[in-house]
Design a protein around this nucleic acid. Sequence first.
RNA 1: GCGGAUAUGGUGUAAUUGGUAGCCACGUCAGACUUAGGAUCUGAUGCCGAGAGGCGUGGGGGUUCGAGUCCCUUUAUCCGCACCA
Length: 917
Amino acid sequence: MEYNFKQIETKWQELWKERKTYRVETDPSRPKFYVLDMFPYPSGAGLHVGHPLGYIASDIYSRYKRLCGYNVLHPMGYDAFGLPAEQYAIQTGQHPAVTTEQNISRYREQLDKIGFCYDWDREVRTCEPEYYKWTQWAFLKMYDHFYCNRSQKACPIKELVEAFAANGTEGLDVACTTPMTFTAEEWAEWNEEKREQVLQNYRLAYRADTMVNWCPQLGTVLANDEVKDGLSVRGGFPVEQKRMKQWSLRVTAYAQRMLDGLDSLEWSDSLKEIQRNWIGRSVGAQVFFDVKDSERKLEIFTTRPDTIFGVTFMVIAPEHEWVEELTTADNKAAVEEYIAQTKKRSERERIAETRRVSGVQTGSYAINPFTGKAIPIYVSDYVLAGYGTGAIMAVPAHDSRDYAFARHFGIEIIPVVEGGNIEVESYDAKSGKMINSGFLTGKDVTEAIPAMFEEVEKRGLGKKLINYRLRDAIFSRQRYWGEPFPVYYKGETAYPLPEDKLPLELPPIENFGPTEQGEPPLARVADWAYEGNQLELSTMPGFAGSSAYFLRYMDPRNSEALVSKEANEYWRNVDLYIGGIEHATGHLMYSRFWNMFLYDLGYVCESEPFKKLVNQGMIQGRSNFVYRIVGTNKFVSLGLKKDYETQEIHVDVNIVKNDQLDLDAFRAWRPEFKDAEFILEDGKYICGWAIEKMSKSMFNVVNPDNIVENYGADTLRMYEMFLGPLEQSKPWDTNGIDGVHKFLRKFWRLFYGKEGELALTTEEPTPAELKSLHKTIKKIREDIENFSFNTSISAFMICLNELGACHKRAILEPLTVLIAPFAPHIAEELWSAMGHEQTIFDAAYPVCDEKHLEESAFEYPVMVNGKLRFKQTYALDMTPADIQADIVTTEGAQKWLEGKAPKKIIVVKGKIINIVM
RNA sequence: GCGGAUAUGGUGUAAUUGGUAGCCACGUCAGACUUAGGAUCUGAUGCCGAGAGGCGUGGGGGUUCGAGUCCCUUUAUCCGCACCA
């Protein structure tokens, strides 16, 4: 009987569904294991072969863990709110809810065909009110909390209000947007509106006037991680900086905890490094410089206080709040002109012109506190308003940007560290002897830095300070297809909706674009109000819904809480999370923040949501080309194309097999190729190829459905794993898929005779067969634990090669279980054919019995002076000394050793590795 | 510019973690069985060389009895951040 994968796979997919084989419940009697995939955004294009890569890996691991006796939670859902559905809606007028629903059905259909073991009863969709109720709920909680730096956790805002009423800001150390100082008396005098304004400075979800990334084409603001190279990640539209009143999340409050938390996580070093960079902690000094003829003290941040003797000018950002004040009458026109110009330049232009030096003098001077010299204050856009204090002390001798600036404006350059060639370029010295630096002169840079920190504090010039690059997350989008904010307004003041009014449902609308006044689409909804007060018009960004979905899966139908205490204490956090690296600075930051916040409030019991994280590599496309002889409709095969002038044309990879073009399919592909002629080599047309991004326009998109159709889900699953290490990016290339398919067929044939009868025997296995089996068990277990799925599949193949035509049940039954995580359909079918009534996934995963691996004798390779000379078989009980004696007396060895005893015999782990003469 | 990763046959890759480099596949070649083969089975296949032998893990250097693996240096590719003070 042939291996009929189609019949087997359909049969088992239906039976699994019917029998709810993959249903999971909390079960305190068993250890839990939580395996999670990053849930997909259901786009209109459907899945391509790259998507399931991570899903297959997590599915293998889930099934393996289940077979090992764990209660495995392995859920799936959809990240269903977001821009693309809405952009599509604007173009076509179709409601995003409709297209999203369609896309989800298509995804589900595709996922089902691959045979995943998701518990679909736990499915979540971020766009459903029952789900986003908890997104809104978390937002309200953030709104109602502030971050106390002293206790390092979120605390209720009413504690802050009490503190303000008692002592004003005196003695507080809390996270805020801009530092404020006021007294209890002042607080008492303020009205509700003013107090609310002040509180926004402290709330973890707050509304503030900040510089934001504004994308005119998308008509919305974007978070930093949604912008790349000055363009929006979705759509690639230009983004500009604009000051707007927006909701933000105070993720910066958690910067240090998010940084520290990384150490305890089993994430790849590169991913941790990306997060560390994104948080961008830098230790430096805050230093106040006196401004000449003024009471003002200009505050700067520097990581190199040791170079302060080399400061010859100061620079403030064009957006710095003192620009006007510091500008003298003579310079007013020039400064205003410069600022106007800066404003006009887009973010993208600013990036493109990174090295262009520009700036203008304010006319004011600061006093270098160590040299006492008056130094000019400039305005330049190379200083960013958003980082540090928006002002710097410039040390042209030791900073390349300051150097360029000083050169351009003819400012004095004073070296303070020995070395480098100051005439030509700056010397960014991290060590070396200090010169021209008063009391620091003669010290090494490494000593000078701490000495200066001390001196700055001693003189009261400033203090040690830690700065983070991380920015608060801008949380509102001027869009329709997202979670509405549970917030209403009285005048300009925002008020939270009472919790029992959640979920605040997204109202249906018909026109999805912004209004003529440029307001978000929700402005069109006539009764978008709460008790007569206008509700917030913006909606939440895409990352809102994905920031706590892993918690919701634990208890997805709970209408009383995001997750019950019981479910949360059982499932705790995600043991294994698999997904793409592209979420390093977005989703993975936000969900850590979100989870830590809920942890502070006691709603969840683990502060880190994802214990172990594996990033699957990207699957690239492998494009195929045909070569048309210029000016003709004649195509020449790859090997012969050098003799002709040809034009390279992308050809649909689905009509190419092993780089060989299906000529009839090609003629049928497009009308223009109907009469195509070919110059063949060896009767074949061989296509060229290249690795490119998988995309429709390059005709290299491979749909998993086609593979499942032709080879079956088990082959697809195994082949995707066989392609190479999981974490590595690799091109999709079906050239090797036959090998995996052949392996499954071969496995199948071991069970069945020619007549389709079960051909298993009860014969006792030989020691060699047992050895092969147990070696494989050991290897497979190790490989799965290490996510080395490609080598585990090799191990299966080796095992079958070694076994040959073995039909013994005692060998094949454990092998079937062993292979079940990889190829669940065929394994389940064979398992059931062997007479088992329970699913194979309730069986126990085979355990290696080391006794079958033992050898009675083994071969030592013997090397003489680096060359392999002969092999000798020794009994296990011989010691290295016995072997040495043996080598010396053996005739063959004697010949090589020319009668001399070796100087040294190198034995590693009881094995002779080399003989030195 | 800073940070991270990768580099092995014609191709995807493997290597007990410092111990016979190239496992397992793809591809190619040869053979068997076949009316046929995009089925199945067997064998060969790193490169040079008729052979003995030599050379081989991006390049150069080092440590070691021994290096794909460790150290230094250099090149190429990919990724992240980027006037971040």
